[in-house]
Design a protein around this nucleic acid. Structure first.
Lengths: 170, 170
DNA sequence: TTGAAGTTTCAAAATTTATTGAAAGTATAT
DNA sequence: ATATACTTTCAATAAATTTTGAAACTTCAA
C-alpha cells in the first residue's frame, strides 16, 4: 500500500472511530493527521489536507490542545504557529482516560451519591429497586474509578508487564 | 429526596451520560427507566414516562434488545409485550464492553494490521513516522484487546477481589 | 504609527442525527 | 373470516451538531 493512501485511510478511519466515542469527526481527523506527521503542521497545512475551513481547523486544534493531545510548537524563523501531536500512544491513552474520568465518571459518581438515599418505606418495591440499582451502579462505578486512577498513574512497563501477567494467570 | 424526583434525575442524567459515549439519549433514558423499574414496562408505559412517540420507543427498545441489555418479558394474561432491563450491573458492563470491542476495537485492529506495512524507503522520515505510529497504536490496541477479553470472561468476584488487590499493590 | 501576517470569533448555513406519526404488517380471539 | 390489539416501518420533519467564512482582533516588523 502506498503511503499517501495509507495516510488517507488512517485519517478517515480515525475520524469515524472518534464519532463512536462522542468525539467530533474533524477533531479526530486532525489528531490522526498530526500523529503520522514527522514535522509539526500549521493551520494551512491542516486546512489543505483535510479540506476544511480556517474556523473549523482553529476550533478543533484548540480542543485538541485543551485535551493535551496536541501542543503548539514554535518553529524558528516562522511567524505562524505549528502544531504537533503527542506521539507516545500510552501517554495519549492515559490522557484521554484522565480527562474523560474527570468530565464524566466523577460527576456521575457524585450524582449517584446524592440519589442513593431517597425518602420512603424501604419495603416499598419501587423504593427498594431504585435504591438497590443506584447502589449497585455506584459500587461498580467506584471500582472503575479506582481501577482507572491506578491506570492513570501507572507507567507503561508496569502496565504491560505486571498487569498482563496477572491477567493471564487469573 | 423524593423517589419521583430521584427517578427523573437519574433518567435524565443517564441519558446525558450516554450521549458522551456515542449512545443516543433516548436509548439511554429507556435503559435507565427500566433499570429502576421493579416490574417490566410495556411500550405505552415508556412512551408516557419519557414523552416519546411509539416509533421512537419501538426503535430504541429494539436497539437495547440488540445490545442484550433489555429483554422481552411475557406477562401472563397480557397480550402486549413487556420489557425488563438486566439488573446485574456487572453483567451490563461486560455486555457493553463485549459489544463495543466487537464493533469498534476489532475492526480498528484489523485496519491497523493492513496499514502496518507501507511501500517505500524506511529511511524516509514520512514512511518511518507513519509505520512507527501505526505500530505503536497497534501494540496498545492489542494489549487493550487482551485486557478486555479477560475482563469479558472474568466473573465479578474475581474482578473485584483479586484484580483490585493487585492493582493496589502495584 | 501603519500594514502585513496570522489568529479568533460567531452568526448563518449545511449537514447529520433523532423523532414523529400514520400506514402497513402481525398475531390472536371469537 | 374478520375484528381487535398490538408492533413495525419509514418518509417527512424537527432538532442538534458541525462547518463555513468573513469581520474583528492580535502581533510584530519596519
Amino acid at each position: 500500500m502506498k503511503l499517501s493512501d495509507a495516510k488517507l485511510q488512517f485519517v478517515a478511519s480515525w475520524g469515524a472511530f472518534g464519532t463512536h466515542w462522542g468525539i467530533n469527526r474533524t477533531m479526530a481527523q486532525i489528531h490522526a493527521l498530526l500523529l503520522v506527521s514527522p514535522e509539526p503542521l500549521c493551520a494551512d497545512d491542516i486546512m489543505e489536507q483535510l479540506n476544511i475551513s480556517r474556523g473549523n481547523a482553529n476550533m478543533n486544534i484548540r480542543e485538541l490542545i485543551d485535551w493535551a493531545l496536541v501542543e503548539r510548537v514554535i518553529v524558528p524563523g516562522e511567524r505562524k504557529e505549528f502544531f504537533a501531536a503527542e506521539k507516545d500512544i500510552w501517554k495519549v491513552v492515559r490522557q484521554i482516560v484522565k480527562e474523560r474520568k474527570k468530565r464524566e465518571l466523577d460527576p456521575m459518581l457524585k450524582l449517584l451519591g446524592q440519589l442513593s438515599d431517597v425518602e420512603g418505606d424501604r419495603r416499598d418495591k419501587e423504593v427498594k429497586t431504585f435504591t438497590e440499582t443506584i447502589n449497585n451502579i455506584k459500587r461498580v462505578g467506584e471500582q472503575a474509578d479506582k481501577t482507572l486512577e491506578t491506570l492513570i498513574k501507572a507507567d507503561e512497563n508496569w502496565f504491560l508487564g505486571s498487569l498482563m501477567k496477572i491477567f493471564k494467570a487469573g
